[in-house]
């Protein structure tokens, strides 16, 4: 029986290990930052805080928590990964969940922490390195051919597909077309809700059915264990006798359980002395005298 249990648990463990191996864990930190959109040739596109038309790089925080990009490195030279250090300690370097940060690649680092010490060119590779200066978080090979005022970016945020975008969207979603919500998409295919009912009830039943199956098995196991013959020492050696069947009624069990509960919760009375009330033969007592009472005896 023990061997059987061991093999069941081993099987479950191996199954879990196989499932987990197939999935990559998703960390929620600086490694979730991604290059999202770049503009190399800026002629009449967005201007920086100095009113200049410069190249820019947009970074997207794909995590669902805020990520501080401070301390990371941006470079256009893979042999020099620590080319531009993004200063730490500035609250402006914190990127909120699923939001963006734009850096100006104008080779003017004296203009602020968002101005890099290199410029963008077609054919260059830019990269973002973690604070240790060795772990590459993301890299982007910029195509050689670049169109004026046309950005090159992911077709949708965090998508693997890149292309030239119709609209420049620094600090905003690359895909600005109206998208139906998950609910709208679901209802478009299932307007009456029967599909949802079928799927959801199946899932609820499956979840509870799995629990049922497991606890039916464990119940059998524990019941068997409880009624297992007990080995008792007899004169002639070990002798097996069946466990005595429970004969106590439910009511008695309930009474015992209540008594135990009250005992554990300290709700029972502590009777360490006996108080006896005896009738006093005298009719008059100072205790019942109106003189000594402060208020009337309640009726």
């Amino acid at each position: 029986m023990q061997k059987r249990n061991l093999s069941i648990f081993s099987g479950i463990f191996i199954l879990l290990a196989v499932v987990l191996a197939g999935n990559q864990a998703k960390a929620q930190n600086a490694t979730d930052l991604r290059f999202n959109e770049v503009l190399v040739l800026n002629d009449s596109n967005y201007v920086d805080d100095f009113g200049q038309h410069n190249s820019w790089i947009e970074i997207f925080n794909s995590a669902y928590n805020s990520v501080n990009i401070g301390g990371c490195y941006l470079t256009d030279d893979l042999n020099n990964p620590t080319k531009y250090w993004i200063p730490t300690g500035d609250p402006a370097t914190v990127i909120p969940p699923r939001c963006y940060m734009v850096f100006w690649a104008d080779d003017m680092p004296t203009r602020g922490i968002f101005h890099l010490n290199f410029k963008l060119e077609g054919g260059k590779t830019i990269a973002l390195f973690d604070a240790n200066g060795r772990t590459m978080i993301d890299k982007l090979e910029i195509p050689t051919e670049q169109k004026v005022d046309t950005t090159y970016g992911r077709l949708a945020d965090n998508s693997q597909n890149w292309g030239y975008l119709d609209h420049s969207t620094p600090g905003a979603n690359n895909d600005h077309s109206r998208k139906a919500s998950a609910g709208e998409q679901f209802v478009a295919l299932d307007p009456l809700g029967f599909g949802m009912t079928l799927i959801a009830m199946s899932v609820v039943f499956s979840a509870l059915a799995i629990l049922y199956l497991i606890f039916r098995s464990t119940g059998k196991y524990f019941t068997k264990k409880a009624t297992k013959p007990v080995a008792v020492e007899a004169k002639g050696g070990a002798e097996k006798v069946p466990a005595r069947k429970e004969e106590i009624s439910g009511e008695v069990n309930a009474a015992i359980a209540m008594a135990l509960y009250m005992y554990q919760s300290e709700l029972h009375d502590t009777e360490n002395t006996v108080l006896t009330i005896q009738k006093v033969s005298r009719n008059y007592s100072p205790w019942s005298s109106k003189i000594y009472t402060l208020r009337k005896t309640p009726r």
Binding site: G193, M196, T197, A200, F205, L208, Y212, F215, G219
Partner: peptide, 15 residues
């Protein structure tokens, strides 16, 4: 444990 399935069936009200 089969009582668990009743808990699932009553969720029909939701849907």
């Amino acid at each position: 444990p089969k009582l668990m399935l009743i808990g699932a069936a009553a969720q029909l009200g939701i849907f």
